[in-house]
Nucleic acid binder design. Structure first.
Lengths: 161, 161
DNA sequence: AAGTTATACGTTATAATATAACAAATATCG
DNA sequence: CGATATTTGTTATATTATAACGTATAACTT
C-alpha cells in the first residue's frame, strides 16, 4: 500500500520522502483515526528528536496528495481508502478529493464513503445561491451496523477486547 | 431575537440564564463565526473575571438548544439562522437540528442551509450500510457569489474596507 | 561538476483551542 | 424551610496547531 502511494507520487512528480512515508505508514497501520501527537509518539521510535512541526508538515503533504483525510470532528487523521485502492487509482486524478465519513461512537471505526449523490446534492444546493465549492467536509456521527445490533467490536483506543 | 430564544427555552423548560444570554448575544452581534476566546474577551466587558470554562459551558448549552452551531473547520460559532427565525420556529422541535454551512474564504461570511436533499442523500447512503446517523457535519469552503463576481464585501476580522 | 534555487527538515518557542476537578452560589421542588 | 439539582467561579492543565529561523538535501542550469 505504501508502494502504491509511492507510485502515485512519482507519477505526479511529488516526493514521498522517508519521513512522509513513515507517517503515512503509521496512519495506515492504525486503521482508525489517529491524532497528530499519537503519530508523533510513533514517529519518535524511528526519529528520536521529532517535534510537532515534523509531523504536521508530513500530514499537510499527505492531505494535499489526498493520501489521508482529516476528520474534523475528531481532529484526527485516517488513510484514504479510495486513492490507495488499486481499483480506484486513476493516477492523474483528484488530489484532495471529496469524501464522506461515518464515525461510529460505539467502536470508533470510521468508514469512508465516496457518494456521488451527496456531492451532487451539495453542489446543487450551493449553485442555486451562486456559491462555488472548493472543498467540503461531510461527517456523520452515529452507530455502525455491528454496534447497533449488539455485536460490539469494541476496538477502542484502549484496546479492550 | 434574544427574546425569541428566551421564549423557546421557556417553552422547553430549559433556562437561558443571564450568562448564556450574554454569550448568545455576542455570537449574534458578530454576525459571523466567532472563536470561543473572542467571546471570552467580549464577555469580560460585563463579567470581569470570566474564564474559559465560563464561555465553553454557555456554548455547550446553546449548542444543545440548537441556538448556535459550531463550524468545525473554523473552530468557531455562529448563531442559528433557522431556529431563531420566527418563520421556522416550531417550538417543540429539533434541538440540535441538521444544517449545512457555506464558508466563503473571500469575505468570511458563513451561510446556513437547511437542505432536505443533502440530508436525504446522506441518510440514504448510510442506511445502505446499516449506519444510523445521530449528528452530522456538512461544511463547504469556497467563494460566495459576491466574491466570485468581483464585488468583494471584505468584511473580514480585521474590518479592512 | 559547481553554482544557484527550491524544497524539505530540525529546533525552539509559543499560540490557540478545550477540558478536568472541585468549591461556592443559586435555583427548584417537596 | 430544607434537600436536591443545576449553574457558576476558579485554578490548573491538556490538547491541538503554527510561527520563525536556521540547516540540509535535492533539482536545475550552465
Amino acid at each position: 500500500m505504501l508502494d502504491s502511494a509511492e507510485r502515485l507520487c512519482v507519477a505526479r512528480g511529488s516526493r514521498l520522502t522517508e519521513l512522509r512515508r513513515l507517517v503515512l505508514g503509521l496512519v495506515l497501520d492504525a486503521g482508525r483515526p489517529v491524532g497528530a501527537y499519537d503519530l508523533l509518539d510513533g514517529l519518535r521510535a524511528d526519529k528520536k528528536g521529532a517535534a510537532p512541526p515534523t509531523v504536521y508538515r508530513a500530514l499537510d503533504f499527505l492531505l494535499e496528495q489526498g493520501l489521508i483525510h482529516k476528520i474534523q470532528r475528531l481532529s484526527a487523521f485516517v488513510g484514504c481508502t479510495h486513492v490507495l485502492d488499486a481499483s480506484h487509482a486513476h493516477a492523474g486524478g483528484c488530489h484532495p478529493h471529496a469524501a464522506q465519513f461515518l464515525i461510529c461512537t460505539g467502536c470508533g471505526q470510521v468508514t469512508e464513503l465516496d457518494d456521488r449523490n451527496i456531492v451532487h446534492a451539495l453542489v446543487d444546493a450551493t449553485r442555486d445561491i451562486g456559491f462555488m465549492v472548493r472543498q467540503s467536509t461531510v461527517e456523520a456521527e452515529g452507530l455502525c451496523g455491528a454496534c447497533r445490533t449488539g455485536s460490539p467490536v469494541p476496538a477502542r483506543a484502549d484496546g479492550a477486547p
